[in-house]
Design a protein around this nucleic acid. Sequence first.
DNA 1: GCGAGCCTCCC
DNA 2: CATGGGAGGCTCGCA
Length: 774
Amino acid sequence: MINNQCNQCPYNICGRIPAQITFKSDIVIVGMAPGNDELKQKKPFVGRSGKLLRETLLKAGFDQTYYITNALLCKPLNEKNVSREAIQLCRPRLIEEIKKCSPKFILALGNTAISSVQNTFSLKVTSIHGTPIPYSEDSSITVIPIFHPAKVLRNYGDYHTFLNGFLYAKQLYDGCQKKDPGVTQYVLVNESNAEQVTKFLINHEPVMSCDIETTSLNPKKAEILCIGFGITKNLVYIYPMDFLPYIKSIFEDCRAKIVYHRSQFDTAVLQAKGINANADHDTILLHYCLDENVGNHDLKTLASHFLGADNYAEGIDKSNMDKLPKDKLYEYLAKDADYTLQLFNLFYPEVIKDPNLNKLYHQILIPGINFLRRVSSNGFMINIPYLKKFKKELKSELKQMEEIIATDFAHLWNRDMYLSQTKAKSAPQKLNIRSPQQLAWIIYDLLKIKPTIYTEVKRSTNVEILENIEHSHKFIPHILKYRKKHKLLTTYIEGIEDKIDKDERLRSTYNLQVTVTGRLSSESPNLQNIPRDSKVKNLFKAPKGYLLLEADYSQLEVRVLAYVSQDPFLIDLFEQDKDIHSEMAAKIFGPNFTDKQRTEVKSVNFRIVYGGTAFSISQEFGMSLREAQMIIDEWFRTAFKAKEYLDGCVEHLKSKQPFITPTGRCRRYGLVTMDTNQCNEAKNFAIQSIASDLTLLSAIELESLIEPYNAKIINLVHDSIVIQVINDKNKVEKVMELVYNIMHEIPIKWLDTDINFKAEIKAGFSWGDMKKIE
DNA sequence: GCGAGCCTCCC
DNA sequence: CATGGGAGGCTCGCA
């Protein structure tokens, strides 16, 4: 099938699959391009992707009568970035092939296939996955975009979505109706109907959706433009903001439960306007219960996947909604509210029929999301004069260091040599010290330094490598120092400064639906990765007249390991409140262990719960593999039940059954690959998950108990709770006692165990200067 | 302007 | 090949 087009194609030299014999088929499957296996066998989809594709087709109920081809006949030079030119050149051939098959459905796998089939580069598989669209060449044929199986093999969490795509395709093939969200109608509230509509909404039962449109994505700055209430499929009532008293009365008196999508934002905005809104339900959390694998639970994506909604948000800028004409704004709001309610009616029955998910949703996620909104709203006080001073210092130090690069190290940069010796397409006149590519050229090509350690990234310039070659050139330590300071300035000084509110407080967004294990995530800014360096932590302070308390669960994950494995050695250790690092060191090295050995064991104690290997330990401490292996073997010989537990997790993974924790968390591995990464994840899941839930549950429980003592929770970091409390001796003592007791009791209550969970409390006026309190 | 890749910070 | 879970800043190539 070589034609004139091929002569112009950049991939013409790479080898191709020859023309296939076409045959009539109702289903045509279009992939991307051949890989090595495909080229060898001269057939599309014969490798790992092909195996997964065939298995999934079978699982979805498709028999063997489909025709498989690719958007490209040749192997691309760079699979991650396929040339648009090549797609267009190969397209006429694909169209011809499809025509000969005369299919009813085309399954387009991945972006390259979709681009070719639909003759456009604007469709992305992640947003239109599983949404049927008419074929660009013949609208009587339906195209269904689905992930490329290679994507699923790289990220097995996508398997659920992938399988759902095929299942839906099969339903359509069998003649089922397309999903249809219906036509959303809205009633605009005005002077004449406000009274009546409000009364109607207040008496409506049992559930209604609520969504608001605002002028900003920051709840503190956002002005509400309009509020919509969805009461039944396709029917939404919209209040413009002139009706605030009516709106208020709905939130105060309504009998229905209110469902939001990403309730933190809407309820925070309403709270800022003096409306006491709390989330009864949240579709983002419901979907998270049903699928912890997808990181994105965006309303638009869910509405498209589950309701068959079109791309109704196209061209709408969420941060600039006041620029939108009113009719467009209302239509958009109405759809958001309508789809939220429709999704709720779809997801909620699914969640409550599973006792674990039901418990997780009602007892943790819903109380949790309202709690986290309040933690965020409390905010963490920043020492602004100190921040300004710190910033100035760092800026001048960085400038000095850049000048040294420009003068003393100028000879290390040769633009032309760099361009000719690397694949770089462009390069600056002066060296950019922040560019890993340029740095790699200097280290590996110009200076020809050979690091003695291995890294996953080729020609890496990361800390490990730089420290390894620190003495090879005086330029290297300079880079290390620069990187450190630059990180400090950009991420922790400027990144924080940008986000301080008018009242000198920093408010992070805590997400409850991001991680697969149930840990929280924190963003804008991330308050969970503030450097331990006290110089940075001292940016965070207690307000005047207040004190900071920080309560940490000590060795939380090891204690959870003791719980899940019921290991007698570990349980006994915690029961007797002994120092786990010393006890373990004594078991491994005998009673006369050195401080260095204790440090090594301490590190192993933490790594064990992540599935750490002898290799990584030997790298960290520069010991032999044999020595590292000995430590691990002895560790597991001592805590043999822990070993059994971790091995059991791998067995459980093999069984393809979900992992479930006592708090109702569920980890489903749709595609079980049994690779190292997945096995380690399986070992770690319950430990990390239970540990983070214990902290969250303790914090939720504490919130109302410490409130009478003028104390508020202002941050959470995985196993620690940061509290601000009025600086009054009696009140501080009372709060500390409560914290200590609750953190001890929550595991007893939730895990039904007598394993001794213990908190450690520190106090201070500044986060970088906290002293342990006995 | 966007996304991938790299790097660095946390538990 | 070789420890799990995150956020975010920067560069660079592409559109």
